[in-house]
Design a protein around this nucleic acid. Structure first.
Length: 224
DNA sequence: CACCAGGAATGTA
DNA sequence: TACATTCATGGT
């Protein structure tokens, strides 16, 4: 199955996702910074806390005091890193003249700028480029890897390699990349768990998951 | 209880 | 470069 075919099936199955789920572009950045290794529900809860506290703006977060910030975003975990990184990122974006200025220039330059922010790795940088700056950048996350591996598209590979796999097979269209990634996540949350515990997947003929063979279990002797 | 979540930084070889 | 480990909260 080609990525285009998978996209069509996912879209038919789940419908348009209207990503990124956020009220403002700045909220997307905040969400990306809080997202690492936690569930989206925890990120939403943290963002609600920030909004209720009236801190959900670049200037306010840049000036917020750390103990208060720590309390508000505590649901997102990693409390020794995320609050400080969030405030520091806001300060550097502000110093650059705001979000638009920070993301200006060619995508490569903007990406390197994002990657210099502590707490922003490749996926977060690309998510911001795609969902905030509307750049045609394919975002690779855990669900993307699982879907691709279970469909036999690729096995393992670095972030750049997986990203290139998609880029070489799809038109460089920000709207397509936006919807595709959103659909992969929406689908993955239901059907692409780390260990396939979905023998009775309801999507057998109407979604990519049904076309796959079982993904081999990870070696439990080295995990933990 | 074990495992996981829309990763990233750090350390090691 | 390529992996392994750590981070921390809350859900299943």
């Amino acid at each position: 199955m080609t990525p285009r075919e998978a996209f069509g099936r996912l879209l038919r199955r789940h419908g348009p996702q209207h990503w990124w789920p956020a009220r403002t572009r700045f909220e997307i950045v905040v969400g990306a910074l809080l997202m690492a290794q936690t569930s989206w529900a925890r990120v939403e809860e943290s963002i609600r806390n920030l909004r209720r506290a009236g801190l959900l703006r670049l200037e306010d977060l840049a000036a917020a005091d750390l103990p208060r910030l720590r309390r508000l975003v505590r649901p997102a975990g990693l409390h020794r890193a995320k609050p400080r990184r969030l405030r520091e990122a806001c300060r550097r974006i502000r110093a650059a003249g705001g979000l638009d200025a920070f993301l200006a220039g060619d995508p490569g330059a903007a990406r390197r700028r994002l990657l210099r922010l502590e707490g922003v790795g490749e996926e977060s940088a690309d998510s911001i480029l795609l969902y905030v700056a509307s750049r045609p950048v394919f975002v690779v996350d855990a669900y993307t890897r699982r879907l691709g591996e279970r469909l036999g598209w690729f096995r393992g590979g670095t972030y750049a390699e997986v990203q290139r796999w998609f880029r070489e097979r799809l038109p460089a269209d920000a709207r397509l990349f936006n919807e595709f990634h959103a659909l992969i996540v929406a689908h993955g949350k239901r059907h692409c768990r780390p260990r396939p515990r979905c023998p009775g997947c309801p999507l057998l003929d109407s979604c990519p998951h049904g076309q796959t063979q079982v993904y081999p279990a990870r070696d439990s002797s080295k995990g933990r």
